[in-house]
Each structure stands twice: as structure tokens, then as C-alpha cells.
Amino acid sequence: MAAEAVGAWFLEIAETTGAMTVLLAKVLARLVPPRVDARELVKNLYKMGVRSLPIVAVTALFTGAIMVIQAATIVKRYGAEGLLGWGAGFGTLREIAPLLTALMISGRVGANNTAELGTMVVTEQLDALRVLAIDPISFLVAPRFIAIVSTLFMMTLFADALALLGAAYTGDALLGVSPTTFYNGLTSGLLNFGDVATGLVKSVVFGLVIALTSCHFGLATKGGAPGVGRAVNATVMASAAGIFVLDYLTSFALGD
């Protein structure tokens, strides 16, 4: 019984992964030579990017603050105020900012994308495209794909900056570490460009995960309005799980 359930679960994961790989191949085939609808791309970049700024900003500011609060205990214990910037910055840039930005974008953009594609599928709008001899992949999926990946990359850059800002001012308020000391700690050489780059590479990987899962579950929607809800649910879970697994793998692959 339990073994059966686990078996079925594995089969399901294998099937989903396979379908996503096929989708990825189809999207990549539309990129060389580029057959992507430019108008849809711009529309989606605006909708996904610009409109996600507020929640990414709030998340980043609070995350930076929380990182400093967590580091504060340790800093106080060792009296190492000068290291606060480095302590909070290391985790923020390499790990927490890309991760939390990805989770928020998955919730907002990924889930939205699934709901949108899912609605188009259940109302036959996708069939309508095909009947007009317009390729749904290059018209709908590829622009969203590119928009999601580039949105997450840019949002991570933005979140990095805001998180450090939040961290600096929380350090000032909570521990009396001046923002100047904080930034000195950041730039004194213990942190380098590689740390920022690690975070940014991760953001691209997470962007691919979100784009693939959200497009896949959106296109695979079945069964009317409740089906759209189920698809959204499946997307956010699969994205979260995928993000963590790939986070681990990229962390190891990139190393120090």
C-alpha cells in the first residue's frame, strides 16, 4: 500500500520531469532562429517584472533585516561588529536573497502564469490559436519563458541591493553598527564578486525551474475551473521543491 503510493509518486515525478524536458526542448527550438512574439514578450516583461517590484522590495528589505537580527546574537557574543556586514552579506547574497526572491516570484509570477495558461486551455483559447495556424509555443510559451527567467534575474539583483540596505539600517538601529561600518565589512575583501555571481547563477537556475513548471502545469490543465486551481497548486509546490533541490545542486557545483 505505502510502497505502491511511493511507486506511483515516483512515476508521476518521472512523467512530469519528462514532459517538462520535452517542453524545454520545444521552447529552445523556437529560440534559434528566434521565433518569439516580440509584443507578447514586452507585455509579459512589464506584467511580470514591473508589477512584482513592490512585493520583491518588501521581501528583500525584511529579509535583510531578519538576517541581521539573526547575526546579531553571534556578533554580540564575539563583539565582532566589523564583521556584521560580512556575516549578513554572505548569507544574503549567496543564498537567502536569491532563494526568497525566487519563492516570491514563484508565488506571484509562476502561479499567475499557470492560472493564465490554464484558463486559456480550459476555455479552448489555445485550440483557437492552433486553428489559426499560430504556434502556441512561440506565441505564448516562449515569451513567458524568457520573461520569467529575465525577471527573476533582474529581481534578484534588485533584491540583493535592497536586502543589504535593510540589513545596514537594522544593524544601525539594533546594534548601533553604523551603515558605514556595515559597508566596510561588506567590501573589506572577505566578500568578492564570486559571491554575488553565485547568487545570480542560482537566480537563472530558479528562473528556469519556475518558467518550466508554471508553463507545463498551465498547459496540462484539465477539468474546468477547479482544474485551474489544482494546476496552480501543483505549480507552486513543484516549483518550491524544484528550487530547493536545484539550489543544493548548484551550491555544490559552484562550490566556494
Binding site: E124, D127, A128, V131, L132, A133
Partner: peptide
Amino acid sequence: RKKCAMVFQHSTL
């Protein structure tokens, strides 16, 4: 599909 167009039941605009 260019030779043979279709109008859906719910119009599907």
C-alpha cells in the same frame, strides 16, 4: 488550417 478555418462554439476570442 489556413485553408480550413474554424469558429468555436463559445467564439473563443
